[in-house]
Design a protein around this nucleic acid. Structure first.
Length: 608
RNA sequence: GCCACCGUAGCUCAAUCGGCAGAGCAAUCGCUUCGUAAGCGAUAGGUUAUGGGUUCGAUUCCCAUCGGUGGCUCCA
């Protein structure tokens, strides 16, 4: 899906980039392929109502209102027909027409009529998004198919490579993305310049399937979801827990070095707390029904902030105390509609690496800079190098406080991004109800973007809870508050990590760092000795003492993506050595225990 | 939540038109003791997601519920 993007303050104008993108060959190929597909669909279902069909990242789609659900066989047939149309080399002809004429042309196409309405009035584009100027109405025609469209397209259908087009799948999609409007059938397709590019794209999809954290979660015995426990609730197995624990321990240590203090808070709180915080006003649809405890209503927490605020309020604070940074691996519960749940990436109960920063207004810019840098430091430690930031601004529909109140913090976040020099885009109206925020997305090894860190300014809670500190002047002042999670949630982060590394965690994170493989039973005693000394040195090792052949043990360790396989037989036992095989398949040969340990410690320290 | 598809042994998947539910891997028990990706044999494993209906007969057809997959909407 193409993201709606706004111009950034710094240099690069996104609108221009978008324009350039529209002129690109792939854009025109995909846009044209969408028209050709619509033609094929109309031939199959003359009564079909057509909606919109834009190019998207990696392909295109078109939405239809059809008399019956499409089947995979339909897709094959449509694809064959598309190839025929392509071979016809029909020219695409653009025509600018009046709204009158457009209405006549699309008289039996209600969705098109609605689009024409929007174009005519100006101010609304085909996605229902506001645009500045009133556009002219144009149609593109090829063969016997005419579509309301602003273009651009290829010159004729022959410029599309019939071997580089493929229809992928059918999905439901609301007309104009509005769940109150009709559900249409969306056909997704992909199109490229060459058959080679198509093949590469399909390979990438296959690779993504191979790395799917749900699949690896089962194969590597990391986590599971039990139908009996409930959807969206994660059970962490010992190996997954080990990875998560190491990640958490590392982050805790960094937080302590970074000036944070750890706190623990409960999982439920009284209704009055959530009333004061504003969650019952703004966030109730994501909260679970209250529990009744001796006639009082308690809610399961969807966020940790009100609790941290209470800790702040537990004593009179001086300006000398600030900034205060309270951190907690806080487990929260949020209602998510069943259809959105997805492995570890979208769940109903999750643990945030949460923290709340309380500071004086004059400390604010510095505090934001600091947390931004800290966030990048943590993400880099886990092997992420590519970042993209999003500045989310006030949503007039869903915002506490006045626009004037929002202005300074929004500007502070923007300036912090400028100073940090990471690329960012502005997401208009995407903020939470309590303040503007910066979201940081990382790119994984397949180039996919994942949202992890979030840094959210919060000017409402200090007011709602009447937070104060005593200033130099002896008077009470209102502190600023920043809400932040760096890995985001441990569940989502683990999911991203699994996919990023395809389950082959770097040594420092690997749940089992080395498997010791005795060649025959008589080598088990020596294997145990090796195990003992490596454990002594802090390594996570196991002996595979099953009555299996060495080959089978290597294969199993390999499939479990264990970083080191240490083969021990007569030669090693005599020399006090281990024969080291890496999961890459590389054979390092026999190393003394000391030499192996040095190597392992090196890999661990460098996060390799 | 909505649209489409799906749910058979721990996992991956078979089972013709509605006619006795099967294989590989994993597990268990033996045998085997092996030098860089699967040694051999035997055993066990099922209310075909759950509940209801149609039928002489349902894994197969229908309905409901639960769960999953791909999207939409929403989101850490």
């Amino acid at each position: 899906m193409l993201r709606r993007i706004s111009p950034t303050a710094g240099g690069v104008r996104m609108a221009e980039q978008e324009k350039k993108h529209e002129q690109s060959e792939l854009y025109r190929i995909r846009h044209s392929a969408a028209h050709i597909m619509a033609q094929a669909v109309l031939e199959m279902f003359p009564e079909a109502k057509i909606a919109i069909g834009p190019p998207i990242e990696d392909g295109f789609y078109y939405d239809f209102d059809l008399p019956r659900p499409l089947t995979p066989e339909d897709l094959e047939q449509l694809e064959r027909r598309m190839r025929e149309i392509i071979k016809g080399k029909h020219p695409f002809v653009r025509r600018v027409i009046s709204a009158e004429e457009a209405r006549r042309l699309f008289a039996d196409q209600p969705y098109k009529l609605e689009l024409i309405e929007g174009l005519e009035q100006g101010g609304i584009d085909e996605h229902g998004e506001p645009v500045d100027e009133k556009p002219e109405i144009s149609v593109y025609e090829h063969a016997d198919f005419v579509d309301l469209c602003r273009g651009p397209h290829v010159e004729d259908t022959g410029q599309i490579n019939p071997d580089a087009v493929k229809l992928m799948n059918v999905a439901g999609a609301y007309w104009r993305g509005d769940e109150k409007r009709p559900m249409l059938q969306r056909i997704y397709g992909t199109a490229w310049r060459t058959a080679d590019e198509l093949e590469q794209y399909l390979w990438k999809l296959e690779e993504a399937r191979r790395r799917d954290h749900r699949r690896l979660g089962r194969e590597l015995d990391l986590f599971s979801v039990s139908e009996e426990v409930g959807a969206g609730l994660i059970l962490w197995h010992p190996k997954g827990s080990m990875v998560r624990k190491i990640a958490e321990d590392f982050c805790r240590a960094e937080h302590e070095k970074g000036g944070y203090e750890f706190v623990y808070t409960p999982h439920i709180g009284k209704a009055t707390l959530w009333e004061t915080s504003g969650h019952l006003d703004w966030y109730q649809e994501n909260m679970y029904a209250p529990l009744d405890i001796e006639g009082q209503q308690y809610y399961l927490k969807p966020m940790n902030c009100p609790f941290h605020v209470q800790i702040y309020k537990s004593q009179k604070r001086s300006y000398r105390d600030l900034p205060l940074r309270f951190a907690e691996w806080g487990t929260v519960y949020r209602y998510e509609r069943s259809g959105v749940l997805h492995g570890l990436l979208r769940v109903r109960g999750f643990t945030q690496d949460d923290a709340h920063l309380f500071c004086r207004p004059d400390q604010m810019p510095q505090e934001i800079d600091r947390v931004l840098q800290f966030s990048l430091h943590i993400l880099r430690a886990f092997g992420f190098e590519d970042f993209q930031a999003y500045l989310a601004t006030r949503n007039p529909e869903k915002a506490a406080g006045s626009p004037e109140q929002w202005e300074p913090p929004t500007e502070a976040l923007r300036q912090a991004l400028e100073r940090a020099g990471i690329p960012y885009q502005v997401d208009e109206g995407e903020a939470t109800f309590y303040g503007p925020k910066i979201d940081i997305k990382v790119k994984d090894s397949l180039g996919r973007e994942w949202q992890l860190s979030t840094i959210q300014f919060d000017f409402t809670l200090p007011e709602r809870f009447d937070l104060s500190y005593v200033g130099e002047d002896g008077k009470d002042h209102r502190p600023y508050m920043i809400h932040r999670a760096l890995l985001g949630s441990m569940e989502r982060f683990m999911g991203v990590l699994i996919e990023h590394f395809a389950g082959a965690f770097p040594v420092w994170l690997a749940p089992v760092q080395a498997v010791i493989i005795p060649i025959a039973d008589r080598h088990v005693a020596y294997a145990r000795q090796v195990e003992a000394s490596l454990k002594q040195a802090g390594l996570r090792v196991r002996v595979d003492d099953r009555s299996e052949r060495m080959n089978a043990k290597i294969r199993d360790a390999q499939l479990q993506k264990v970083p080191y396989m240490l083969i021990v037989g007569n030669r090693e036992a005599e020399a006090g050595a281990v024969a080291v095989r890496l999961r890459s398949g590389e054979d390092l040969g026999a190393l003394s225990l000391e030499a192996f340990l040095a190597r392992a410690k090196d890999d661990i320290a460098s996060h390799a």
